[in-house]
Amino acid sequence: MKRLILILTHSVIWRSFLRFIIGVKYVNRSVLKREKQYILIANHNSHLDSMAIMSAVPMKSIHKVHPIAAQDFFGDGSTVEFLMKHFVNAVLIPRKRPKNSNDPDPLQIMSDVLDIGHSIIIYPEGTRGEPGVMQEFKKGIAMMVQRHPDIPVIPIFLDGLHRSMPKGVNLFLPSNSKLFIGEPINFSSNETELILEESLQGILEAKTH
């Protein structure tokens, strides 16, 4: 049932809406069809980002892809949380590190999702930033790569979605934009700093595909 809702909202309604009304174009989408499980990393400038990436995912695996969202921003127990969980398929995590042992560990939540064979969408910048400016990456993505070295990391560059729906605005408008999907990143080493740097490179290079 949930799978049906997701296919209907994302692959049918959202995809047509984003493509024909908002003007989103997908570049190199075949990568997502080729790989079975993946960690998607992308730059983050707009609330539309997750919707756009979800609509690019192939129909048959859409129920296995989860955008990672902030608990403190979306998880206020209201309709927003309900919509995020059932219509966006999001996994909510707390943004702060656990203080005592009873608090859930955000990294463990993501790991669990990957362990059952599902995929995740992460924004390594942590929050929506200024368009065109990459913020420093949070370390979470590096830890995911260290824990799950055999899951491919696919970089995505989102170009222009912030014009459709900038930060702090509740109205989205048509404006041409592009979603570039890069080839999986081959990390040269297991060091945190290097992984972060190569992820950033991967996202920037996705644009040239």
Binding site: G160, R163, P166, G168, L171
Partner: peptide, 25 residues
Amino acid sequence: FLALREIYTHLKMRNTDRVALLVCY
């Protein structure tokens, strides 16, 4: 519609112009 969307993509509109943009569409 397609032509208007195309040209507005390149105009650097301010965030406060969005209501006027919606009216245009």
